[in-house]
């Protein structure tokens, strides 16, 4: 428990967050977050809506800059870096956005090929080969010429995952990868994430509110509440912690209480 506070040898962590603070207007969204994401493991950030999960992920993938605190990505402290150095760090990332964020003016093939076309000097044949390998790895074939609007939500997630993986990233980030999917598809996407993480040897940071289903594929779980990490550890440790707030969150998810809270918020 609470390894974040005790600190780990930094080499073992893909991402280390220390004392991260972020304020939007009068709202203190992140209030001193400490988090370790061990290399080649899946770290899942869970918590109620509006408690800063996505904001935290947007700091780790360098879309937002913190007000205070540090973020270390594979040994590089990134909060003070300039634009060019930041791009060098981003080369390590693959990111799966909540709604996929596929380019809707491009076909499935063009979407997955996009990072290779824009950022590498590979030949057309090499790109086609890499794209098809990656699409195979996420279980999609024969979709090359379809546009994102012509395929199902689950397939869009797979395409987006393929695009995130096509440049062989070291760190995969996933923002609520199963939002909007039915339970069967949710299970399939979870399994896909687990398998990909193993096969590609990735470090993964995931934001999810799919509890407790997501625990099955997580190596570490961090429970965020009121801008702080309230619980951290392996899924078993977190479940056994007997934390009142966390238990209420788990039950709330099950009974749909959380939905009502968000609706009235």
């Amino acid at each position: 428990m609470n390894q974040a506070q005790n600190g780990n040898p930094s080499s073992a962590n893909a991402v280390e967050v220390r004392g991260l603070k972020k304020r939007f207007g009068r709202q203190q969204v992140l209030d001193g977050v400490d988090l370790d994401c061990p290399a080649q493991e899946i770290t899942t950030i869970v918590g109620p809506s509006g408690e800063g999960k996505t904001v935290l992920l947007k700091h780790i993938n360098l879309l937002l800059r913190p007000d205070a605190g540090t973020i270390t990505i594979e040994g590089v402290e990134v909060t003070r870096l300039g634009a060019l150095a930041l791009n060098a760090v981003r080369e390590k990332f693959g990111m799966l956005f909540q709604a996929g964020a596929l380019f809707d003016s491009m076909t499935v093939f063009e979407n997955v090929a996009f990072p290779l076309v824009e950022k590498t000097n590979l030949s057309v044949e090499e790109i086609a080969q890499r794209v098809h390998e990656t699409l195979d790895a996420v279980g999609l074939q024969g979709m090359d010429t379809k546009f994102p609007s012509e395929i199902s939500g689950g397939m869009q997630k797979r395409v987006a995952l393929a695009r995130a993986l096509v440049r062989k990233p070291r760190i995969l980030m996933l923002d609520e990868p199963t939002t909007g999917l039915d339970p069967t598809r949710t299970g399939a996407i979870h399994e896909l994430i687990r398998n990909t993480q193993k096969n590609f040897g990735l470090s993964a940071v995931m934001v999810s509110h799919d509890v407790p289903a997501v625990f099955e594929i997580s190596d570490r779980v961090a429970f965020i509440k009121q801008g702080k990490i309230r619980l951290y550890g392996t899924p078993a440790e977190v479940l056994a912690a007997n934390d009142e707030v966390f238990d209420r969150f788990l039950k709330g998810r099950a009974s749909g209480e959380d939905l009502e809270q968000t609706a009235t918020a």
Partner: peptide
Amino acid sequence: AELGSMQATEQIDALTVMAINPVQY
């Protein structure tokens, strides 16, 4: 409308994370 819906569906963020400057692109 095109840029607005790209912003709304995080396509512009996706460019940034791919280390592609969205203003330049």
